[in-house]
Amino acid sequence: MQKSNEQLITELVGFVSEMVPVNVEDMRGKLSGLLSTYAVEKVEDDETHPDLTDNVKLYLANKKLEGMALNSLKSYKYELNTFSSFVKKRTEDITAGDIRIYLAQFEHLKLSSLSKKLTVLKSFFGWITGEEIILRDPTSRLKAPKKEQRAPKSLSIEELEMLREVCKLPRERAMLEVFYATGCRLSEIQALNKDDINLQSMSCRVIGKGNKEREVFFSFKAMYHLRKYLMTRTDDQEALFITLRKPYRRVGHRAIQREFKRIAERIGLGHKVHPHVCRHTFATLTLNNGADIVAVQQLLGHSSPATTQTYAILSDERKREQHKKYLVQ
C-alpha cells in the first residue's frame, strides 16, 4: 500500500511540474501528508476495477430488496461479473464501444442469448445512471438484436401420452402430471410442501417471479397420481417431492431435471423434454383448446399478455375447425 502511495505521488508531481513551475520537494512533502490518511492501491491493467465491482454489488443488493427471484439474481450476478472481468475499467469510463466489443465475442450464441446479456447491462447501467453514480448511460443507444420469432417448444398430445405410459415409479408420474396440470415453473413446484395442497379445491398457491403469489389448479389425473405417490411415503418430510433414498430431503432442481430426462430417454425424447416443456405444453394445449388468453396469462403468472401470446399458435386441425365454424359464407 505504501509503495502505491509513493508511486501516485511521484506521478502526480511529475504531471503537475510539466504544466506549471513548482517546488518539487515541497509539493512531494505536502502530497505525502495529504495522502497519509488514505489507502491507495494501484489497479493493474489485467485486474477488474474495484469501482465497477462495488457498483455491481450495490445494484444487485437493490435488486434483492426489490424482490428479484434468487435464480434471476444469480444469473444477473454471473453476467455482470463476466462483463466486469472483461472490461476492467472504472464504471464512468465504460463506453458503448466497450460493450459492443464485449458482446461481439459471443457471436456463437443465439440472438436471444445476446439480447439477454444486453438486457442485463441495460438494467445495470440504467439504474446507476438514475442513481447519479455516473452521468451518462453507455447502453442508451444500443438496440437489442431482433429475436427469432419461434413458438416455444411444447409436446404434442401423443408425446405427452407416451411419457405417461413409460413412467415406472409413482414419483415420476406424479411429477409429470403436477408440472403439466399446473403449468408451474420448476422453482415453484420444487418449493411446494404437502400442506400447501388444498384437496377440496384441488389447488394450491405458489410464489412466482417477483415474489408474486398466484393460485394454480390440479387435474383429477394429477391429484390421483399425487395421492398415489404420497401414500408410498413413510417419512416426516414437509416437502411435496423428496429424494428416493435416505436421508430423505426436498428434491433439488437438478434432480428433477434428471428425472424428466430419464423418463424421456425411454422413448427417445431425452433431448426435448425438461420440466419447462410441461409449462409450454400446458399453455399451448389449453389455448389450442379454446381457453381465454387472459385466464392462461394469470395461471402462468405472466405480467404481460404479450408473453402468453407467444403460445397462441393454433394447430392445423384447430385452424381448419375455426375457419369452418366462423367463416361467413
Rank of each mutant, 00 (worst) to 15 (best):
I9L: 07
T10Q: 14
V13K: 03
F15Q: 11
V16T: 09
S17V: 04
P21C: 01
P21Q: 06
G29S: 11
S32G: 12
G33W: 05
S36L: 10
T37G: 09
A39S: 11
E44H: 09
E44N: 14
D45R: 10
D46H: 15
D46Q: 12
H49Y: 01
P50L: 05
D51K: 03
D54F: 13
K57P: 00
L60W: 06
E66V: 08
A69L: 06
N71T: 14
F83M: 08
S84G: 11
K89G: 01
E92H: 13
I99E: 07
R100Y: 04
R100C: 02
A104D: 12
Q105V: 11
F106N: 06
H108W: 10
S113T: 13
K117G: 09
K122H: 04
S123R: 08
F124T: 03
G126V: 07
L135C: 09
R136N: 11
R136F: 12
L142K: 01
K143C: 04
K146Q: 14
K147N: 11
P152F: 05
L169G: 04
L169E: 13
P170I: 03
R171M: 12
R171Q: 08
M175S: 00
L176Y: 00
F179C: 00
S187P: 03
I189G: 00
Q190S: 07
K194V: 14
D195M: 13
D196V: 01
I197F: 05
M202D: 09
R205S: 08
R205Q: 09
I207E: 07
G208L: 06
N211L: 10
K212C: 04
E213W: 06
V216D: 00
F220H: 15
A222T: 00
M223T: 09
H225S: 09
L226G: 00
M231I: 14
M231R: 15
T232D: 04
T234F: 09
E238W: 00
I242S: 02
T243P: 00
K246D: 11
R249Q: 14
H253L: 13
H253E: 15
R254F: 14
I256N: 12
R258W: 08
R266F: 00
I267Y: 07
I267V: 13
G268D: 02
G270C: 07
H271A: 08
K272M: 11
H274A: 07
P275Y: 01
H280K: 06
T281G: 05
A283I: 01
L285Y: 03
A295F: 06
H302A: 05
A306R: 14
T307K: 00
Y311Q: 03
Y311R: 02
Y311P: 00
S315V: 10
Q322M: 12
